[in-house]
Design a protein around this nucleic acid. Structure first.
Length: 98
DNA sequence: GCTTTGACTCTCG
DNA sequence: TCGAGAGCCAAAG
């Protein structure tokens, strides 16, 4: 199992309406490769299963998205997550820490 | 096998 | 509160 595959496995675990951070995922995998987690999301082969759009910065800002940040925000809104100025509202509440 | 790059994070001013 | 700088790790060239 590759590093990126593990990331995708964790992404599948994220429940609907929740988000997580790259740092949390990296720690869960026992590494500090936050940036590689981002790469894994960018190379995500199965988009709908692994919810890469539910992953954000550690400070609650959106970060980036292959199809555009706006699209990412839109998806999050549909999940019931509220955003303000590219930042997650109630970040502590919707944060999923595994 | 060394260098570059990236959807990151932390620290400091 | 916000921006700049430095550090980190894995993957690709």
């Amino acid at each position: 199992m590759k590093f990126q595959e593990k990331v995708w496995e964790l992404l599948k675990e994220i429940p609907k309406g929740r988000v997580t951070t790259y740092g949390i995922i990296a720690r869960k995998l026992g590494t500090k490769a936050y940036r590689s987690v981002g790469n894994a999301c960018h190379n995500n082969p199965y988009f709908p299963i692994a919810a890469c759009y539910r992953v954000v910065y550690n400070n609650g800002s959106i970060g980036g998205f292959a199809s555009g940040v706006k699209n990412k925000i839109n998806l999050l809104k549909k999940e019931g997550i509220k955003l303000k100025n590219n930042k997650i509202e109630n970040f502590e509440k919707v944060l999923f820490k595994f």
